[in-house]
Computed example of a mutant assay.
Amino acid sequence: MTVLTYAEPSYAAPPSSSEPLAIAGSLGEVIGNVKAWLTGLAVAVWGAMFVYGALLYSAAGIGTKEMGKQTMRYACIGFVLTMLAPLALTILQGFVD
């Protein structure tokens, strides 16, 4: 049995404009972008720390169980602070714009 195939080359689409993608319109836009990026990063770190604390709590002895509770508590405090930080940046952004 013989199978004949033909593959066409694929080419990238030409850019739609000549302007770079990284130009921000204002300082407020830059602050908004940084705020979104840092919030996403902080939530990812929070999730990892909470899971680590839960693993310590569920899979360990007495001393490590308390450390797991403390890690989850600190992760929740960090999450609340992470959610309040954009509020402070929004207030600062109001002064800049």
Results as ranks from 00 to 15, higher is better:
residue 1 M to E: 10
residue 2 T to F: 07
residue 2 T to H: 14
residue 2 T to W: 09
residue 3 V to L: 15
residue 4 L to T: 14
residue 4 L to Y: 12
residue 5 T to E: 15
residue 5 T to D: 12
residue 6 Y to K: 14
residue 7 A to V: 12
residue 7 A to G: 13
residue 7 A to L: 05
residue 8 E to L: 15
residue 11 Y to W: 07
residue 13 A to E: 13
residue 14 P to S: 10
residue 14 P to N: 05
residue 15 P to F: 01
residue 15 P to D: 01
residue 16 S to L: 13
residue 17 S to H: 11
residue 18 S to M: 11
residue 18 S to Y: 03
residue 20 P to W: 01
residue 21 L to C: 02
residue 23 I to M: 03
residue 24 A to H: 04
residue 25 G to P: 00
residue 26 S to A: 08
residue 28 G to K: 00
residue 28 G to T: 04
residue 30 V to E: 04
residue 30 V to G: 00
residue 31 I to H: 01
residue 31 I to Y: 02
residue 31 I to G: 02
residue 32 G to C: 03
residue 34 V to Y: 12
residue 36 A to Y: 03
residue 37 W to V: 07
residue 37 W to S: 10
residue 38 L to M: 07
residue 39 T to Q: 11
residue 40 G to L: 12
residue 40 G to T: 01
residue 41 L to T: 02
residue 43 V to F: 15
residue 44 A to E: 06
residue 47 G to H: 07
residue 47 G to W: 04
residue 49 M to S: 09
residue 49 M to T: 11
residue 50 F to W: 11
residue 51 V to C: 13
residue 52 Y to G: 01
residue 54 A to S: 14
residue 54 A to D: 11
residue 56 L to P: 06
residue 57 Y to M: 10
residue 57 Y to R: 09
residue 57 Y to L: 13
residue 58 S to H: 04
residue 58 S to W: 09
residue 58 S to I: 02
residue 59 A to W: 12
residue 61 G to S: 08
residue 62 I to K: 08
residue 62 I to W: 02
residue 62 I to T: 10
residue 63 G to H: 06
residue 63 G to P: 00
residue 63 G to R: 03
residue 63 G to W: 03
residue 64 T to F: 08
residue 64 T to L: 15
residue 67 M to T: 12
residue 70 Q to D: 11
residue 70 Q to I: 05
residue 71 T to S: 11
residue 73 R to Q: 13
residue 73 R to G: 06
residue 74 Y to C: 07
residue 76 C to M: 15
residue 76 C to Q: 13
residue 81 L to E: 11
residue 85 A to P: 00
residue 86 P to F: 05
residue 86 P to V: 02
residue 88 A to R: 05
residue 88 A to N: 09
residue 88 A to C: 08
residue 89 L to K: 04
residue 89 L to Y: 08
residue 92 L to E: 05
residue 92 L to H: 07
residue 93 Q to E: 10
residue 96 V to M: 01
